[in-house]
Simulated assay, not measured.
Amino acid sequence: MNISVGMIIFSTINFLIFYLIMKKFFFEKTLAVIDERKMEVESSFKKASDEEARAELLKSKYEEDIKRFNNEGMQLVESYKEKADRIYSEIVEESNKEAVNIKEKAIKEIERERAIANKEMKQEIIELSMELAEKTLEREIDSNRHKELIDEFIAKVGI
């Protein structure tokens, strides 16, 4: 192996010329492409970071909305429960009033029936008394006068 100085100088000059040509025509474009790609990557990372921050913001907003909706749902359920309790109380109260009214009507009906029965009983007593008096006296007496006497007797006795 022979190393020739001329060959080293020629190769070095060749390399320098090649380097200058590459620098003149290709290095700037290649560096521009590399810089552009670097900017795209950085832009993508920034977008991803921004999207992640936005997603976190949306997530926290949705979680707050869910909590609010749960609270509103619970309030709505509680409201309907209170309304149902109120309606139940009104129905029970109305039923109690109706029961009292029915009881009062029944009492009045009983009193009316009792009064009718007492009147019929008095009438029966009067008729029996008249028959008894007729048989005892064996004659017919004035029925109006006889009824008056019996009414007085019943009033004194308290029937």
Rank of each mutant, 00 (worst) to 15 (best):
N101W: 12
N101D: 14
N101K: 15
N101I: 15
N101Q: 14
N101E: 14
I102D: 09
I102L: 12
I102W: 02
I102T: 13
K103E: 15
K103W: 12
K103I: 13
K103V: 14
E104H: 03
E104K: 12
K105V: 11
K105F: 15
A106C: 01
I107E: 13
I107C: 07
I107P: 03
I107M: 03
K108P: 03
K108A: 14
K108V: 13
K108L: 14
E109C: 10
E109R: 15
I110F: 08
I110R: 12
I110C: 01
I110G: 08
I110S: 10
I110Y: 10
E111D: 13
E111L: 04
R112I: 15
R112P: 02
R112D: 15
E113D: 15
E113Y: 04
E113G: 10
E113K: 14
R114F: 04
R114C: 01
R114I: 01
A115M: 10
A115W: 06
A115C: 07
A115Y: 11
A115L: 12
I116M: 12
I116F: 10
I116C: 02
I116V: 15
I116S: 13
A117F: 00
A117G: 08
N118V: 07
N118T: 08
N118G: 06
K119H: 13
K119M: 08
K119E: 10
K119C: 04
E120Q: 06
M121L: 11
M121Y: 04
M121A: 11
M121K: 03
M121C: 07
M121N: 04
M121S: 02
K122A: 01
K122E: 01
Q123S: 14
Q123E: 13
Q123P: 07
E124D: 09
E124M: 11
E124W: 02
E124P: 07
I125A: 10
I125M: 11
I125L: 03
I126V: 10
E127C: 01
E127A: 04
E127V: 05
E127M: 04
L128Y: 07
L128W: 03
L128N: 00
L128T: 07
S129K: 04
S129V: 04
S129T: 06
M130G: 08
M130F: 12
E131Q: 07
E131W: 00
L132Q: 06
L132R: 05
L132A: 02
A133Y: 04
A133C: 05
A133E: 00
A133T: 00
E134Y: 06
E134C: 06
E134S: 10
E134R: 08
E134W: 06
K135Q: 08
K135W: 03
K135H: 09
K135R: 06
K135N: 05
K135M: 00
K135D: 00
K135G: 01
T136R: 07
T136C: 08
T136P: 01
T136I: 10
T136K: 09
T136A: 09
L137H: 07
L137M: 09
L137S: 06
L137W: 03
L137F: 09
L137K: 11
E138D: 11
E138I: 02
E138G: 11
E138F: 00
E138A: 02
R139M: 03
R139Y: 03
R139Q: 00
R139K: 07
R139F: 02
R139N: 00
R139S: 05
R139T: 01
E140Q: 10
E140P: 05
E140T: 09
I141T: 10
I141D: 01
I141A: 02
D142K: 05
D142C: 04
D142W: 08
D142R: 00
S143Q: 11
